[in-house]
């Protein structure tokens, strides 16, 4: 699965970035460049899937891609996909990740959920004390409040949660094996969970692939819960975990000043940041805020020209566009590409 995901990212990046760009996307790097790549190449689903991905693991995958002749790499770190690689990429399934909206928060959801399930399991068995699976005191107090608010002492919460889980899992368009995987990351009274190592052995795949299947299922589940009102309990457990503010905090601050009418130069002065950083923020806003207008920086005609050139030359490379569309700065080009075709 990891290899398939990487192939898809490389394909979407269209040979216009270095291989490291894919690494930053998977780790969810909060830099202007990465955020911009996400929008330009439509890579939202992959953002921040593996925040702790070791560089070594990533490089090993790239090395095997080179060996399989799926791609070639230049000294600069730029790559280009070969025919075989493109074929392989075309054969990969469409994954249902939604990294952009969850950014690792799926693990918070699962920590809450598994502590709730564990508590209810011990309650069903009439055992009052156990070692909580989550040591995080925030999770523990969240779960305590949840259980009390839902009158767990009546003993009916188990049945209600069971029904919601059965329903949501039945609806999800994912394999039974992956649903089973997630159920085995839970534990209960006399029902220990299985380690990643054990699950990987059973499924005959790598630990990383198991973890990715797990994340995919959680993203799908969270979106299903989010989109309908059919799951009051799961909806509560998922509360506050879907990312609403899609821009970084720093970009948010810049946006605030910009809306008050300060110019870029003034914002640079006020925030004591580099001009290029402020420009990054504005590009980020152009990409994520539908109401943000690039009008003050670029005319409609100029934007049109950029899009025509981009189509004509089949590229989103700034350098190329800078050469062919005369008289426009890199910042202007980035704004146009970020805003998307009008």
């Amino acid at each position: 699965m990891f290899h398939q995901i990487l192939l898809q990212i490389f394909q979407k990046l269209n040979n216009e970035r270095t291989i490291s760009a894919a690494y930053h996307i998977l780790r969810g790097k909060r830099s202007g460049q990465t955020i911009q790549d996400i929008g330009l190449f439509q890579l939202h689903k992959y953002f921040g899937l593996l925040p702790k991905l070791p560089r070594k693991t990533f490089d090993e995958a790239v090395t095997s891609f080179l060996q399989y002749s799926w791609l070639t790499m230049q000294q600069s770190g730029h790559y280009s996909m070969k025919k075989l690689g493109l074929q392989r990429a075309a054969q990969t399934p469409d994954f249902l990740f939604d990294g952009w909206h969850y950014r690792g928060n799926e693990h918070v959801f699962f920590a809450r959920f598994s502590l709730i399930v564990q508590s209810l399991s011990y309650q069903s068995a009439g055992v009052r004390s156990f070692s909580p699976i989550s040591r995080d005191t925030n999770i523990q107090s969240w779960v305590r409040t949840f259980l009390i608010e839902h009158n767990y002492q009546d003993g009916h919460l188990q049945q209600r949660l069971l029904e919601e889980c059965e329903q949501v899992l039945s609806v999800l368009p994912l394999s039974d094996a992956n649903k089973q995987l997630v159920l085995y990351r839970l534990s209960g009274q006399s029902l220990p969970g299985w380690t990643w190592q054990q699950l990987a052995g059973e499924r005959q795949e790598t630990v990383l692939d198991c973890q990715l299947a797990f994340i995919e299922l959680l993203h799908t589940l969270l979106n299903e819960v989010h989109e309908t009102n059919d799951y009051p309990l799961l909806g509560k457990i998922a509360e506050g975990l879907r990312v609403k503010a899609l821009v970084t905090d720093s970009a948010q601050q810049t946006a605030h000043l910009y809306e008050q009418g300060y110019s870029i130069e003034q914002i640079v002065q006020i925030r004591k940041l580099k001009q290029s950083t402020i420009e990054d923020h504005l590009v980020e806003l152009a990409m994520n805020e539908p109401n943000f207008s690039i009008g003050p920086f670029v005319s409609y005609e100029e934007a049109e020209k950029v899009w025509q050139a981009s189509k004509h030359y089949q590229t989103k490379k700034l350098k190329t566009l800078h050469e062919v569309v005369e008289g426009m700065s890199y910042f202007q080009l980035r704004l146009v590409l970020a805003k998307g075709e009008v």
Binding site: V117, L120, S121, S124, A125, Q158, Q159, L161, L162, C165, E166, L169, D176, K179, Q180, V182, L183, Y184, L186, S187, G188, Q189, L191, W194, E202
Partner: peptide, 15 residues
């Protein structure tokens, strides 16, 4: 042996 997800879910919550 691993159980099917439905059985596991039931066992966890209902015992």
């Amino acid at each position: 042996e691993m159980m099917p997800w439905k059985s596991r879910l039931k066992q966890l919550l209902m015992g």
